Amino acid sequence: MCKKNWMFVSVKQTKPVIVIVMIVSLLSLWMLLPIRFTNPASSLSYLESSRLAERSLYKLDTGWPKFPKYFTGQVFGVAVDPVADIVYVAQRGESVPKVLMFTEHGYFLQVWNTTSLEMPHGIFATNSSPAPSVWVTDVGNGKYGHTVKQYTPSGKLLQTLGTPGTPGSDIYPLQFDQPAEVFISRKEEMYIVDGDGGLNNRLMKLAQGFGIAWMEGEKGSGPSQFYIPHSVTEDTVGRIWVADRGNKRLQAFDATSGEWLGAWASCFTADAPYSVRLTYDDKYFVVAQLNINRVVFLPVPPIGDIGICRIVDTILLADGVKPHLVDVSRKTGAIYVAEIGAQQAQKFVPNNRK
């Protein structure tokens, strides 16, 4: 009888202890979880973030360039020769060389001694026939401004598009007002976004002989309208993409006809797209956002409806860096970023490419 009572008392007294231990264990497990999911969407978001963190697309090359002392002004643009081992960096400032030349390994080559560049904005290097050349947009208000200029790789002026020193919207003769950027496709077709805050807000495709093949745009926020079209590129299925800075969106057009194909805005609520290029493998858009100091990567949509945009990776830069325009090396896959605030250009290399 005494044994039976002892057994009954022992079980009755230990029950609360067991319950307390179980509660403490559950709370401990709950606190050790990396995140407490309140709904399925939060769970998916966490898992997606983990996957992206594991597969960061690019990393900074801290050794480029080897002699950063050559940066002496505000760096506005950067261009990579698609064949030769040359990176061109455009900068502004009083008594500073307007273009610097480096190798992709970071060695300094030379400066341009041209006096025909007033205020460079966009810069693009091409190896198209008959010889390699570099195109620079000049947004200055002096006697050389409001033009798009073609130079030899060493900086000798070959020709000027537009009416130097005369802002305008005419196409015969061709006039620009603060042209932001020029892009030459793999088919050697030229596209210009004209209107870095000036009179014009338009996208132009130039035919052979530099006549107008088609032109789209006016100031506004509707389809085919722009407010400071700032950068332009082409994808592999014949779509032209424009960073419509003032409207905080990318717009897409048919390369052959100029037909408007759609726009992406949902990825740019925090800040506008300032620059747009494709990664070396043509899978992602590389987009710089100046005011929030970051570069984002967006998957290029397949042929057909462009759908909606999504950000799959981000390069976060330090406060005040202010990334302006970017370019991509087709040879090495590296991304070069022109940074106004930091007064430098930086190189980022793909993580999955040796």
Score class of each variant (00 low, 15 high):
Glu216Gln: 13
Gly93Cys: 03
Leu44Met: 15
Tyr70Asp: 02
Phe102Asn: 03
Met31Thr: 13
Ala342Arg: 08
Arg249His: 02
Ala180His: 11
Cys267Leu: 06
Pro82Phe: 09
Gly258Ala: 09
Asn5Leu: 13
Gly93Lys: 07
Pro173His: 05
Arg249Ala: 05
Lys12Leu: 12
Asn352Gln: 09
Val80Asn: 13
Lys12Pro: 01
Leu100Arg: 00
Glu234His: 06
Phe285Arg: 12
Glu118Cys: 02
Leu203Arg: 01
Asp177Gln: 07
Lys15Asp: 10
Lys59Asp: 07
Asp170Pro: 00
Thr14Lys: 13
Lys322Val: 02
Val111Glu: 04
Pro82Ile: 01
Ser25Cys: 15
Ser95Val: 05
Gly211Glu: 02
Leu161Ser: 00
Ile86Ser: 09
Lys3Cys: 15
Ser28Phe: 15
Ala79Pro: 10
Ala288Arg: 01
Val139Ser: 00
Lys3Ile: 14
Ser224Leu: 02
Lys66Met: 13
Thr233Met: 06
Asn113His: 15
Ala84Leu: 14
Ala265Ile: 10
Asp170His: 00
Ala318Thr: 11
Arg277His: 05
Lys66Arg: 08
Pro153Asn: 06
Thr332Asp: 12
Arg353Val: 12
Val19Ala: 05
Ile20Arg: 13
Lys354Arg: 14
Lys12Tyr: 14
Ser25Lys: 07
Gly209Phe: 08
Asp85Ala: 08
Ser25Met: 15
Phe102Gln: 04
Ser185Phe: 07
Ala270Pro: 01
Val111Asn: 14
Pro301Glu: 04
Ile306Glu: 09
Val287Phe: 00
Gly320Tyr: 03
Leu27His: 12
Lys4Ile: 14
Val287Ile: 07
Ala345Cys: 12
Glu339Gly: 07
Ser154Ile: 07
Glu216Trp: 00
Leu199His: 12
Tyr46Ser: 08
Lys322Arg: 09
